[in-house]
Design a protein around this nucleic acid. Structure first.
Lengths: 228, 228
DNA sequence: CGGAAGATTGATCAGTTTCAAGCTCCGTGG
DNA sequence: CCACGGAGCTTGAAACTGATCAATCTTCCG
């Protein structure tokens, strides 16, 4: 149980809590594992609780009838998902699938809410979590509505490169999934990568991409202008 | 002060609190008024607190460099905005402008957070508020990415008509603003309204729109959306 | 080695935006 | 009271972005 508490303390949602809280969280949580590609929940399913990613990756997404997919978020270890239906009491707003072999902690709704009632710090952490996601979504809406695909891709590449101020970045998702993340399709993504290569802004080889002209990418990312 | 408490109790965020809480909220809040078109805050401004709309309407939006506008949300009386930066400590994620002559209540960050610490009910209400907004944003992302403009318009008309199960709806925003809400431009919106008219699905005259074929609109609205 | 999934490329197409012009409504001032 | 002027809305033609369809190529495992 001590191990569990230690593990929980490393999760942003649970940072800075009292020891007793970690023990309570351990008691109510349920560990579940999923194979790559396995579905965790579907849009509309009753939300009986929420999840924290312990290991692996979880894809939160919407799908159209034609099969096109828009990824809302890729959850990495330490991130939460499914919280929305805990607090609104409606079904899950989107689909969740394990994008890799994944382990999650499940927290049943009622038990978790009673913990929140007991600990304002947990409540504040959760609000920070929700707010962060809200900010991300606002950014995604902005990108989808006000930027073109090259702008979104440039922004993503700069984001990857900015993590460690490195100009040699490695895509951490397949190109098909990257397309779904950027709100486009693989064909279009491929063409735009080719174009950026041809313009000398990047040099890509499979999942390895070298950023050659950061300034140029920033211009595309900020202005969303068309490429010549 | 009793009046104020009564007013606060009618706001979802503040429902079901103790009398003492209403008095505390009254003490820390600040009433501010804005003319139509007046700016309340800009993206990136330091968030020193959040707002509740008392009267009027507040437009939360993003603008592109070319001037195109995407409305994230139109806040009506009782709704909150600017909460995100209270809990993440960064600047406001979008712009806020009074879309009508507007009165708001401002709640300073630190004082409000200390109230949250004292009252789990307030915390839970706030989480419900944030979750509701998150769900709306997820829907907007889905619409922008997976639906075409006619689908988004049809959905909006059905939403308006569904409020009171009425087939005679009145647009509550200008067509230019509706375009910005749907992620398009006035010209495109105008063309699509004309097309829906011509197809006999609606009969529009200025801001007055009669829904003639609910079924037909539903089909268009769900196009691109996976059937549940 | 073979085969399937993923990725690229080409040709075409549909939906949306852009640019431009004209129209309607409405408040204001002569 | 009418005329003017401007903002908002509509309409048309052309340009453009991204999607679709189809074919190939690559990668990567079993």
């Amino acid at each position: 149980m001590a191990d569990m508490a230690k593990q929980l303390a490393g999760i942003p949602l649970f940072s800075g809590l009292l020891q007793a809280q970690y023990e309570a969280l351990s008691r109510i949580s349920l560990k579940r594992s999923f194979l790559k590609g396995e579905r965790i929940f579907s849009e509309g399913d009753e939300g009986t609780g929420f999840y924290v990613v312990a290991g692996g990756r979880v894809k939160i997404f919407k799908v159209s009838m034609e099969g096109k997919e828009q990824i809302l978020h890729l959850c990495r270890p330490g991130e939460t998902f499914g919280e929305v239906s805990v607090f609104t009491g409606q079904g899950f707003p989107a689909d969740a699938v394990a994008a890799l072999p994944t382990t999650v902690l499940f927290f049943p709704r009622a038990a978790f809410i009673s913990l929140i009632r007991q600990d304002p710090a947990l409540a504040l952490n959760m609000m920070a979590q929700l707010s962060k996601r809200l900010r991300e979504f606002a950014g995604l809406i902005e990108d989808l509505s006000l930027k073109e695909v090259p702008g979104r891709l440039a922004k993503y590449l700069l984001y990857l490169g900015g993590l460690d101020r490195n100009d040699a970045v490695a895509l951490d998702v397949s190109k098909g999934q990257l397309a779904a993340l950027l709100g486009t399709i693989p064909e279009t993504l491929s063409r735009i990568l080719t174009k950026l290569n041809h313009q000398g802004l990047i040099r890509s080889q499979g999942a390895q991409i070298m950023i050659l002209d950061r300034r140029g990418l920033e211009e595309i990312a900020q202005e969303g202008k068309r490429l010549p």
